[in-house]
Computed example of a mutant assay.
Amino acid sequence: MADININQAHSLSPAKAREAAQKVADKMARDYQLDCQWDENVLRFERSGVHGALTLGEQRADMVIRLGFLMSAFSATIEAKVAENMRKVFGAT
């Protein structure tokens, strides 16, 4: 198993941060066929071989992605794509 940890600072309101997180989730769902579900300020996602969560804080968003054996071969590509998407939607601060 491979773990990916991505931390993105932001200066968004809680509502705007949730909108940004939903954009990240929507793109991940399309790209990797993930099922996503909110649990308060945590967006959980999963599919066979992948699961994780995007946790919203006041000034940062923290994502943890756990990849199974087969998906771990793509960890660098997945991390780069997701990190870039998070930078775009949360904005660099």
Rank of each mutant, 00 (worst) to 15 (best):
M1L: 08
M1D: 11
M1W: 03
D3W: 10
D3R: 14
N5H: 14
N5Y: 12
N5A: 10
N7T: 13
A9E: 07
H10C: 10
S11L: 08
L12Q: 12
S13M: 04
S13K: 13
S13C: 09
P14C: 01
A15C: 02
A15R: 09
K16T: 11
A17Y: 12
A20L: 10
A21G: 15
A21N: 15
A21L: 10
Q22Y: 14
K23W: 03
K23Y: 02
V24E: 14
A25R: 01
A25E: 06
A25T: 14
D26F: 03
D26H: 05
K27L: 09
M28R: 05
M28I: 10
M28F: 11
A29L: 04
R30W: 05
R30V: 07
D31L: 09
Y32Q: 06
Q33D: 12
D35Q: 15
C36W: 15
C36E: 11
W38P: 01
W38Q: 00
D39F: 11
E40V: 01
E40I: 03
V42F: 02
V42Y: 03
L43E: 06
L43I: 07
R44S: 10
F45M: 09
F45L: 10
R47W: 11
R47P: 06
R47C: 08
V50I: 15
H51I: 10
H51K: 14
G52F: 00
G52I: 08
A53S: 12
A53G: 11
L54S: 11
L54V: 07
G57R: 03
G57F: 09
E58L: 10
Q59S: 14
R60P: 01
A61V: 04
A61K: 05
D62Q: 14
M63R: 05
V64E: 14
I65V: 08
R66V: 07
R66G: 03
R66M: 12
F69S: 03
F69M: 04
F69I: 05
L70M: 15
M71T: 13
S72E: 05
A73H: 14
F74G: 04
S75I: 00
S75T: 08
S75M: 01
A76P: 02
A76N: 06
A76T: 03
T77K: 08
E79N: 02
K81N: 02
K81L: 00
K81E: 00
A83D: 01
E84W: 00
M86V: 12
M86L: 03
R87S: 05
K88P: 00
K88I: 06
F90P: 06
T93R: 09
